[in-house]
Design a binder for these strands. Structure first.
Lengths: 196, 196
DNA sequence: TGACAGCACGAACGTTCGTGCTATTCTACC
DNA sequence: GGTAGAATAGCACGAACGTTCGTGCTGTCA
């Protein structure tokens, strides 16, 4: 890996953490350059617009998410163990010190839901893919009879997402230390309800 | 109501809608002035800093939320009817044309959770109050035996918030028309689980 | 009629934003 | 170890940001 490529990913690493705090719009080239001891123009040359940087940040985060959360979970047996791994992986992902401001995607979701453009388009694709991973995992669980036949994958997924978003809200904004225990309890009930 | 006061609330009305789209940070005095056919300085004089404007927007939105969602719900009988009214009221609140970008608070939650300061402090107070309204309503339902004695008010509330946040995400970002039906189904199950 | 608030205006401030150019430094390969 | 080419720095730009200032309306009370 050449020097340029190394710098490039170092920028994306730092940008991902910064974006988790101030959002993709609040992300600023000058601040990013300062933090990495680069000149504004030197950093800018790696991407050719801020929009491209934002999209690359999303892709970079998604790639890391796939590696650290999704892939390990897909190695687990179908049904409850796999869903539990996705759930636990997401919580660990949010707690990761590389994301000091929580999940980049959670921040981007509400930030971009009313700002049409290529960045939002990319975010939708990535988030839809993540939702599909969950729904497909549930469906596979149903097919292998680890879950009840009448389990609705999309219903399960939407409720699971809700548990995670509410945890994010209660722990990060309201600073409630018991939020995680409640989230785990809610997920356990969701999981039990799907078992045969 | 004098002219100044009328203009003041007109600004806040418009600012609330704008903030629901671009966030409290993305809210810009120049854009707000243009939209209201005011000069930047004329508008600025009503508040004395952008921070004060942001806080007033939060208070303004909270007041409207209390009037249109909370107060009608508190007029309902304790237990399921009251919780259902809070749930329905929230959905109507998000759909309100005065909030073209969805709920201001949902946007502010992730935007400010890592930005310390007076605006965040005020948001926390308001959101904590809203969570307390829900939890208290559940507790009153338990006390009047409309809900089972082992119903945990905070657990119920956190799960309810999750259903709402997930609905916001699925409908506004992923544009899923079936999200509301799923949210209603999830809430119905949550409510049934609390009934004696 | 004259004094006085209340309200809004236009111009300008210093700063920061994203984005281009043009050098200069460094890296990797022959 | 020299040289082509990649990588970064330096500098400047136009626009937009929040904020300040002086000024001028417009209506109210003495």
């Amino acid at each position: 890996m050449g020097k340029g490529e190394r710098t490039h990913t170092a920028i994306l690493d730092h940008a991902t953490g910064l974006a988790s705090q101030v959002g993709l719009t609040g992300l600023t080239i000058g601040a990013l350059a300062d933090a990495l001891d680069l000149s504004k123009s030197g950093l800018f040359a790696h991407f050719h617009s801020k929009e491209a940087l934002q999209i690359e940040v999303l892709n970079h985060a998604a790639q890391r998410f796939t590696e650290t959360v999704i892939r390990p979970a897909l190695a687990k047996p179908r049904g409850a163990p796999r869903m539990q791994a996705l759930f636990d992986g997401w919580i660990a992902w949010v707690r990761d010190e590389a994301l000091p401001g929580g999940c980049v995607f959670v921040a981007a979701n509400t930030e971009l839901d009313d700002r049409p453009g290529p960045v939002r388009d990319r975010l939708v694709v990535l988030q839809q893919a993540w939702v599909n991973v969950m729904a497909t995992s549930v469906r596979k669980g149903v097919e292998s009879e680890a879950f009840r036949a009448d389990t609705d994958p999309k219903q399960f997924t939407q409720e699971m997402v809700g548990i995670l978003l509410s945890l994010h809200f209660h722990s990060r904004l309201l600073n409630d230390p018991r939020a995680e225990a409640r989230a785990r309890r809610a997920f356990k009930a969701l999981l039990e309800g799907a078992k045969p």
